[in-house]
Amino acid sequence: MAKEFELIMDRIKEAQTIIIHRHVRPDPDAYGSQLGLKRYLTLKFPEKKVYAVGETEDSLEFMGSPDDISDDVYQGALVIVCDTANAPRISDGRFNLGKHLLKIDHHPPTDQYGEVNYVDVTASSTSEIIFDMIDYFNDVTMIDQEVARLLYLGIVGDTGRFLFNNTTPHTMEIGARLLNYEFDHMNALNQLAEKDPKLLPFQGYVLQNFTLNDKGFAKVQITSDVLKKYQLVPNEASLFVNTIADIQGLKIWVFAVDEGSEIRCRIRSKGIIINDVANDFGGGGHPNASGVSVRDWQRFNELAEALDSKL
């Protein structure tokens, strides 16, 4: 992938303005890769204007905040999209307004929308890829504790604190190197895991309202009236997708939240490929962690049956 790194850096050197996007419903890796790349480029090219844009996520506000820029900033700009498999999932639809468009990602490449597409499906996270790029250009000594904090949190988020099977020896090596920087990694991890006390009754609801069959398939259905009862917005409910992950015998589970216009389904598994089912229903993602949106609960039941059939 060295060729793609060189092409990406050539575009970065040419540009005076760089705008970095990531996916909707951002997670720690989306924030970490985007903001970590922004900070790195700011340090490497202080003369350039570098922005990060997209919707905000309150639970990740401690990692940083996106920039608010006008459309005219895109004139002649280089746009880089991090951690986003397909164009419809890019947060902020202005990504096509720039002069050049690049993609850096670790999801299976369902949509190569960039002029240059760096996709490494063996990487644990896009934050891992950003560190590899920094390392490739011998810039590790240039980065600071903020870059290290952001990339570390991105890697931790997508590996489930190094517990998921996408954690490789290379991932652990990068994690160790990032810990050499003087940021309070315990505080950062605590911030990543903390939940607002008002959310905990909902966690109890999830633990009492899942269904699990004898094959190891489970589902959680969060309807609009449940959200109203616990005074939650859909993004807050989605934080609990792994609440039932430790149940003995569990192999595949789907966590569905009614978001009004659609039902967002987060699909997880323990070693069983499920992104093929997600793709069949118009979604996608990793082999063991995917997502899809369906129009109603009847369609959700069809999705659940397809997932159950994998067992």
Rank of each mutant, 00 (worst) to 15 (best):
I90N: 07
V140W: 00
N288Y: 14
D72G: 00
Y74M: 02
D308H: 14
E173W: 13
F183A: 06
T126F: 01
Y118P: 01
L192F: 00
N279V: 15
G160T: 10
S125K: 04
Q34D: 08
T141R: 11
V226Q: 12
G204P: 09
E47I: 08
Y230L: 10
S70E: 14
D27I: 09
V257T: 15
I222T: 15
A87N: 08
G282T: 13
S33Y: 13
G260I: 01
D276C: 00
N209G: 13
H286C: 01
R89E: 07
Y31D: 03
I80N: 05
D258A: 11
I90M: 12
V140M: 14
D214M: 06
L179H: 06
K48I: 04
K215Y: 04
I222F: 12
W297E: 08
V156L: 09
L178C: 06
I80F: 03
Y152I: 12
V73L: 14
A52C: 12
I18W: 08
A256C: 10
D308W: 07
G284C: 04
F300D: 05
P197L: 15
V226G: 05
Y181L: 14
T141M: 06
L7A: 15
I20C: 12
I252H: 05
D276S: 13
A148P: 07
V81W: 03
V121G: 02
V220T: 14
S238D: 10
L153T: 08
I244L: 07
G291P: 04
T167C: 04
F162Q: 13
K195L: 12
V147H: 04
V226A: 06
T141F: 13
N209T: 13
V206G: 10
E6T: 09
E115G: 08
M9P: 00
G64L: 11
A176L: 13
